[in-house]
Amino acid sequence: MLAKTANGLYWMSRYIERSENTARLLETGLRMALTRIEPSHDEWKSVVETAGVESAYIQMHEEYSAQNVIDFLLRDKSNPSSVMSAIDSARMNARLVRTAITRDVWESINESWLKLKDVLKRPVSDSQLPTILGIIRQQSALIRGSLHGTMLRNETYSFSRLGTFIERADNTARIIDVKYYVLLPSDSYIGSSLDNVQWESILRSVSAHRSYRWFYKADYIPTNIAEFLILNKSMPRSLAFCYDKLNENLNVIGRLHNDQNICQEHSCRILKMLDSHDATSIFTTGLHEFLTNFIDENINLGTKISEQYRFYQ
């Protein structure tokens, strides 16, 4: 496989994942804004922070109003994480690797791009937002379905999976990290109803509020939530799940060569690190420190993949 193709597949999937994650963040933001008793822009601010685009946002806007944030995260072309930018980049990469993906995959990405370009032509008001977010979610489900249903399970598929899970791991880690210190400024909040709303929003932003209930059959408890999103291997957006999948796919690619598999070694180490923890030990280490370290290691893996498989040279 051409290194350029591997690179294209990887980024195609990262951007598809990103567009969906950004949409989900907005959904959470909207919900938080609706359930607030007093009007506040804090939630929209934390949405921007979670998306990791704070500095770019500040250059464009002075305050964190719903309208500004929605526009910045949905449509702004100067924001590489906006849904429109992400789907644009996903399609451009899909075009680049057109010969490596099935017609179904290409057409689903192309159709999503056409559809989203159309619905995001004009600024989106709060009242239209739920419908539009629904469309975005539906489109990414179509793309995922065609990838899942039509791609040969070989290294082509694996490179696209690597992109998905590196992006997702990064996203989940950031969501927990941002909420952790933004939402728990002092002990006095803990256990309050406001606190409950905050924690639920974390679960919602990774579509896990229902599955949390199925799994724990109990109220929101910070240690459970952390455990669920970080360590639970049956939860498809948890860090441990992502690293299970990364490992699996690096294995598939590794079978092609006899060289030392630097990437796999690295992902194995991260997985072992996750396995060695439980919620209590994470909180003892410090959740923020733990997550910051994880985010760095995850970025490192991305770099190692691009080096070992010659993405750029």
């Binding site: 290194a3 350029k4 591997a6 057109r98 010659r310």
Partner: peptide, 27 residues
């Protein structure tokens, strides 16, 4: 390229290696 089942390359994927033209693959 797709219908022939061959690689689609750009100049940046290619270089001269041992007197032949070679494409940069993942291996």
């Amino acid at each position: 390229a797709d219908h022939m089942g061959v690689e689609l390359v750009e100049g940046s994927d290619l270089r001269v290696v041992n007197g032949k033209i070679a494409m940069r693959t993942i291996l």
